[in-house]
Design a binder for these strands. Structure first.
Lengths: 225, 225
DNA sequence: TAGATTGTTAATCGATTAACAATC
DNA sequence: TAGATTGTTAATCGATTAACAATC
């Protein structure tokens, strides 16, 4: 179940990125974006550590996997580090994403806007409810979910956000995969069965809140990340 | 930064639960709920493993921390295991939760319904926009975020879901903590600074999607959980 | 009994922290 | 130079897997 370690395609050079390190890259990147906007030139591992809730040793370890980007005594050049992480995460290549399930959650995500800054374009919203088809959702118009094949072909999307009810999720996923989707961000509280070559990430909101409640009850403190 | 290991208060007996094991409990529970509803009496570690995307050895290890609940040759009694996990996660004690930020995402979560089954009641929705105050949101009526103190006192909530824009998140969190909130589920793409005794869990949707895109590009396969 | 499956210990693996020389 | 901070190796820690006797 644990991902096999594998070389990162676009990596400048240097060592392997652990699975956990990879999870932290977007967090570092968010901070770097803010620092770049503010015109800051260098950032220390200590500062990035505070932003990510990690130790500074860990930050240095993570970043050393991208190459020798830092300058002893000064820190890491913001722009260079930003570019290196963006390259690893493939942001330069703008990627089309489709969203299936135009309920409140789907609508929230379409309007969220945070995707564009990360190289991801929501190019189509689909829904199975004929009543919703044709209605606006953000800047887009809701399309018929039964036409997912056409939409995927037209947009070239390989990623999908799935915000349909739990009982509809597996069928929807099957359809998406059948038509070429290779990565699914699943908001339905259901474990999807997909072919080996398809990646799935699960966002289970109630599980998160339940664990938070547990942490709270048991007196656990601090960032429960 | 890593949570200190600590004895679980309501634990029947038995060993310590690792942080990762704790994360898996809600997943097991979801499956157990379904099995119980179907009238199944016993479930094997193999079946739970398939549902959770873990190995069956790991499932047995996790569950052994709850006590010797299984029967060799038969499996785990569904009802007993269900009750044990619910007790650990504190579901029996229904907990009030408030939600701050009644945009699309907040509305989606209020209407989501999956919380109730997990012992969590969304008892109030708040928003800072005077235009929204007084309007309905699911079964509730939106209240004024500036009155968070009164609401928290009235409802006794110690948990909050934060679905406000990123730039408003820290101020909102400060206010909530000031009025007694001790756990925050944060959807804003911002690292919150909170006192040590407050727990925060972050749900960063665009980071998840970005990582998914990365997995996809780099040809990584399978459940990227 | 034979087959299945648990609970637990030991072995492995991966990730984090500690330490420190090298460098600005 | 002195102080700060990186990059990297070794030590520690925690989590997962493997193995197997005990039990239904």
């Amino acid at each position: 179940m644990i991902s096999r370690q594998r070389d990162v395609p676009g990596a400048t050079s240097a060592g392997p990125l652990s699975r956990r390190a990879l999870d932290r890259l977007p967090v570092y990147l968010r901070r770097l974006n803010a620092l770049a906007a503010a015109g800051t030139e260098y950032v220390s591992s200590t500062e990035l550590a505070a932003a990510a809730g990690a130790s500074r040793d860990l930050v240095r370890k993570d970043l050393s996997a991208l190459g020798q980007l830092g300058r002893p005594g000064k820190g890491y050049p913001v722009g260079v580090l930003e570019a290196a992480i963006e390259q690893i995460l493939g942001i330069s290549t703008h990627q089309p994403v489709i969203l299936v399930g135009a309920g409140h959650l789907g609508t929230a995500l379409v309007q969220y806007g945070g995707f564009a800054a990360r190289g991801l374009d929501v190019v189509s919203v689909l829904d199975a409810d004929p009543q919703r088809v044709g209605q606006p959702c953000g800047q887009l118009t809701i399309e018929d979910a039964s036409r997912a094949g056409e939409v995927i072909e037209r947009t070239g999307a390989r990623l999908a956000i799935l915000t349909v009810p739990g009982e509809a999720a597996q069928l929807a996923a099957d359809d998406l995969v059948h038509h070429g989707i290779r990565g699914i961000l699943n908001f339905a509280p259901v474990e999807l069965e997909v072919p080996e070559e398809v990646s799935v990430r699960v966002v289970d909101v109630s599980a998160e809140l339940q664990l938070l409640a547990f942490h709270h009850i048991s007196g656990e403190a601090g960032s429960a990340r």
